[in-house]
Write a protein that binds this DNA or RNA. Structure first.
Lengths: 216, 216
DNA sequence: CGCCCAATTGAACTGCATCAAGATTCGTGG
DNA sequence: CCACGAATCTTGATGCAGTTCAATTGGGCG
């Protein structure tokens, strides 16, 4: 995996300001491996488990009765998901990359642990705050009017999330269709936006999923 | 304002499954009152305070350099906001209703309290999870393709958040412009959607902000 | 009662969805 | 290593939904 192990060492405003997984939390988790497109949990499933991406990536989505799909979040290594206080999930989460590894924790045991282990409690709180931040940021993007801007802002947002340091390249883990379903526009429009951005010299495409930012 | 004065005291069937404000938390807070449109905190402000809506309503937003405004969340009585682990806010939060009352808590003291008082820790976690839920739900709405649907889904969503029991009426605390800035469409389109929904017999308007749902 | 801001409606233009072909890329097996 | 096939991605043409600009109406508060 290209992701460097995240240092907890101080730099304020890291993409993930994550402490390492608390030792206590690690002790109650077990690892599972998922294939591409395989559901980690389904819509309406009971929410009795907490999850963490160890390697690969996953996305939270909802399928509508009419076949439309909505993507509401993408999870990268280190991210906790399944954070809810409701008994059932509304969304599903599936692996994006093949061979995605997920650590699973029993909700009951995590909750008990959060009551006694400060590191675990802090980790959950921090991760929740980060999820809120991500969603708000994404809301800005999706709420933007023109499709051009949506796509560009999405790329910048995703670059900020994945890049360590000053690399102006970006490797997209997701497809054009995923981006479309995330931004509420058609896949064709996403393509055209990519083409336009390249023509305008904002980005360069090495491959369909390898992007370099030119001027910011 | 049509908003009835809201009691912090528990009422069955609350929209959020919130425990009452933990007694320990209450003890470290102080109350402030805000006028309509008055900022509770501003963009880039240091995030050293936590807030709770006691009465009235507030919204989180961001102003772009070009004058465009994005609304990412609305806070109703009982909601905690200012939940972040970053040093500075990215968004601002302002009062929507006139005379909105906000309880303010020092972040430092809340964090210390969360380490020793289980009720406070649980409350913060629960509120964070609810914020995540709200944002995901809203993402679904904003990510929908047609403006018609966006507006209708928004109304239903808001009705679910505010209504206690089986009342099919809805009193909107926010303007058409606010809705537009929340959904990423123009205010005119919001109006036309309202008109269409009324013509189609889905809703009835008593006043511009008093809505009744006909068939669901 | 009248003012002012919010909400509504109208008309013209434009950006995006949709349908329909092509062109790449990538995985798979020969 | 190359060839093949199936996704994925890209591009084109057309119609409609939504933006924009402009004017009018209506409701709420002084």
């Amino acid at each position: 995996m290209p992701n460097a192990p995240t240092e907890p060492t101080a730099k304020e405003d890291l993409p993930h300001p994550l402490a390492a997984e608390p030792i206590q939390l690690r002790s109650i988790g077990h690892l599972r491996r998922f294939r591409r497109e395989q559901d980690i949990y389904g819509q309406d499933e009971r929410s009795d488990t907490l999850y963490r991406v160890v390697s690969g990536s996953a996305c939270k989505y909802l399928m509508r009765a009419d076949g439309r799909r909505h993507l509401v979040d993408v999870y990268l290594p280190g991210d906790l998901f399944g954070l809810t206080c409701r008994a059932h999930h509304k969304f599903a989460v599936r692996a994006v990359a093949d061979g995605t590894q997920i650590a699973c924790y029993s909700r009951q045991r995590v909750e008990a642990l959060a009551g006694e282990d400060l590191a675990t409690a802090t980790e959950i709180r921090t991760q929740s705050f980060e999820a809120i931040r991500r969603l708000q940021e994404q809301m800005l993007i999706v709420g933007t009017m023109t499709a051009q801007e949506k796509v560009l802002e999405f790329l910048v947002y995703f670059h900020d999330r994945t890049s360590t340091g000053r690399d102006d390249r970006l490797a997209l883990p997701i497809s054009r269709y995923d981006i479309a379903d995330m931004l509420g526009i058609s896949a064709e429009t996403v393509c055209r936006a990519f083409t336009n951005l390249q023509e305008r010299g904002v980005i360069t495409l090495q491959g369909p999923r390898r992007i370099t930012f030119r001027r910011r």
